[in-house]
Design a protein around this nucleic acid. Structure first.
Lengths: 205, 205
DNA sequence: GATAAAACTGTACCGGCGGTACTGTACTCG
DNA sequence: CGAGTACAGTACCGCCGGTACAGTTTTATC
């Protein structure tokens, strides 16, 4: 029972790395079991087919993601009660976290799945959509709180601004990879911070 | 000679659609030749292996991309001589173009390749990097021109701002797909426009 | 209208992979 | 001690990428 869960975890870890590096379709079960040092039977004991592996991968990924962001923005909240400054601190912490990945961000599973739509069923797409909506909900809440205190300097939809955070993280990951500049992601998050600052900071009048 | 190029083009078109929808590794040569109505021998006459298909795909993609952007920002330039307003118009045209894709943006080949690094050789990665750098160069030029007239309202690196454009397009495509909201991409580009506006517009003092 | 090159088709084969099916077995928890 | 858990072993199927190579039709060119 305990050992089973451990093997499953190891399989998922190996699979996640492989999928982010080569895509889901190009990741063979054989290479996974070779690295995990188990047999094919062992694999199919844990996952009835490749689709179930995919489902388990995203569920695990989204859960870890949520825990990570919860923690990060809770810390940011503790450092400053003002919602705007708390968000700005949170974005700085986020950028620092990204910058601390020496090999660069390994990639986002949601993005991989979106770029291989036809390989996955509606079920899995619903999960990735849920992940994106969770980010949106998290930041819309904060942005509304901010805009009540600091009226925005431009006529923008707060839902769009919330989604911009996801957009820049996803885009930043790709740009980091494309340019082979691991620091790019953090730098783009800092630029997002600059936008939030300009958007909500009271103008000198 | 003429007919050969035509078949090659048809193959590339079919392959591009398939790769963007399923990833490179999951795209089989068999399905491509089935849709193109040729035989396997025909395929290998045009491309000596799958890797050469990949190379031809990006080269074609990047060339088309360049032509498209050249045209778009040339039109923007003709509508307004001021570099800031010209860029803002250009971004609006870009957003409109994105919004005109009824099924949403089909996806960016550079992103697909980045998310399947291990499948491609250094050669191909150099091509995608070149594509990203071309976008950067294009916009850095304009941004420098702008900042000479309108000093930026925040201390930002213009290279980062230039890369932000690519970041938001790449991220916007993913968010459009993840949320299944085709309009998302255009909306995020418009938000980028809002940032450029806030960054360079003279503050009322 | 002959000729050569271009643009394929046809056939046959290899090894790897996803997936299925079923049997056997070591470990472990109650 | 017995029942489930967590695998290992073996055998097999069909699809796919890739190779090899011979044959055939189409097309441009002189």
């Amino acid at each position: 029972m305990r050992k089973g869960a451990e093997t499953r975890e190891r399989l998922l870890s190996i699979a996640e790395t492989a999928v982010l590096a080569k895509g889901f379709g190009a990741t063979s079960i054989e290479e996974l079991i070779a690295e995990a040092e188990i047999t094919k039977s062992g694999f199919f004991y844990h996952f009835k087919d490749k689709t179930e592996l995919a489902r388990a991968l995203i569920v695990r990924y989204l859960e870890a993601d949520e825990v990570l962001l919860d923690d990060l923005f809770k810390r940011a909240r503790e450092l400053n009660v003002d919602p705007l400054h708390s968000l700005l601190i949170g974005l700085k912490l986020l950028a620092e976290m990204m910058a601390d990945l020496p090999e660069g961000h390994p990639g986002c599973l949601v993005a991989t799945i979106c770029y291989q739509e036809r390989l996955f069923d509606k079920d899995i797409h619903e999960l990735t959509r849920g992940g994106a909506l969770a980010w949106r909900a998290r930041f819309v809440r904060v942005l509304e709180e901010i805009s009540e205190i600091y009226p925005p300097n431009d006529d923008v939809d707060l839902v769009e601004v919330a989604d911009l955070i996801s957009t820049i993280v996803e885009g930043g990951i790709i740009m980091s990879k494309a340019l082979r500049e691991p620091e790019k992601l953090a730098a783009q998050v800092i630029l997002l911070r600059s936008y939030i600052k300009l958007l909500f900071s009271p103008r000198p009048s």
